[in-house]
Simulated scan of single mutants.
Amino acid sequence: MTERGHAAVRRDSDNLEIGASAVRWTGNALEIEIEERDKRLGVPWQRRVCGKVRVIPEALNPTAFALDPAGRHRWHCLAPRARVEVQMDQPCLRWSGAGYLDSNFGSEALEDGFRVWHWSRAHTRRGSAVCYEGIRRDGAAFASTLRFGADGTPEQEELPLVAPLPNTVWQMERKTRADHGHAGVIKTWEDGPFYARSRLHSRLFGEEVVAVQESLDLDRLISPVVQFMLPYRMPRIA
């Protein structure tokens, strides 16, 4: 993944192109075309990364939710349930399975509005459930749990108990919500100094589920040490 300048970005209502890669809405699926080079600093070669990902919604939700009283930050669970098809040419990979699609957007940077947040999503027999909580920049806490029906309609639910999770190798704090406050980590997919993404087993609303969970520490993100490290992970092209 490479950061690029505004001249490399083109968009309209159904398309977003960034460099040679693109995201397109076809009317029934989101198609992600990847054409990149692995340009991490310190790596003497540039490995090609290319392929296509299709996200096919099984349900669509038209409602976005404000994450702060002023409405500067909004979260939209576009597809509470989706099917994902991955066809990579370089490296050669094929995969398909259950997925999800959401979006965060707002009028200020995330780090200006929040200090930390935790999010998790689980598919259930009749739909899906999303737990979202964190601490805003002013120190106020927020939390909500939504259940989405098979047609994508959201309903607010009473918050399950907090389920603490073990810290990551980078000592990122993680937590989720679950019946009786118990959940466990199956696998940690992403473990960084300010972000972690994991696969969990837990119980929600009386049902055993496998969940995807993420934790984000925005105080860590804006620290000078992390800002110094970021270009080594994601090079910038003017």
Rank of each mutant, 00 (worst) to 15 (best):
G97K: 13
N15R: 15
R54Q: 06
L30R: 11
A64I: 03
L16W: 03
W45G: 04
N61F: 00
T2I: 10
P62K: 07
A70L: 13
C92E: 11
I34S: 05
P57N: 05
R47Y: 06
R11V: 02
A98Y: 09
R4T: 12
G5P: 07
D68C: 05
A22K: 13
L30N: 05
R37G: 11
L101R: 13
W95Y: 10
L60A: 07
P69Q: 06
R24M: 04
I32D: 08
N15K: 10
N61Y: 02
R37T: 07
G97N: 09
W25H: 04
K39G: 07
G42Q: 10
R74I: 01
L67G: 03
S21P: 10
N61H: 03
C77W: 01
G19L: 01
P91K: 09
T63P: 00
A8K: 12
A59P: 03
V23T: 10
D38S: 15
N61M: 01
L60H: 05
G27P: 00
C50Q: 12
V53R: 03
A98T: 15
Q90K: 11
K39V: 11
R40T: 11
V84P: 09
R54G: 00
N15G: 06
R54V: 00
R47D: 07
G71M: 08
A20D: 14
L78G: 01
R81V: 00
F65G: 04
D38R: 14
A8D: 12
D12K: 09
R54H: 01
M88G: 03
V55A: 07
E17G: 07
I32A: 09
A66N: 14
E31L: 08
E58N: 14
D38F: 12
M88W: 03
L60R: 12
A59M: 02
P57H: 03
R40V: 08
H6K: 11
W45F: 15
W25R: 07
N61K: 04
E17F: 05
L101S: 04
V9Q: 09
R72E: 11
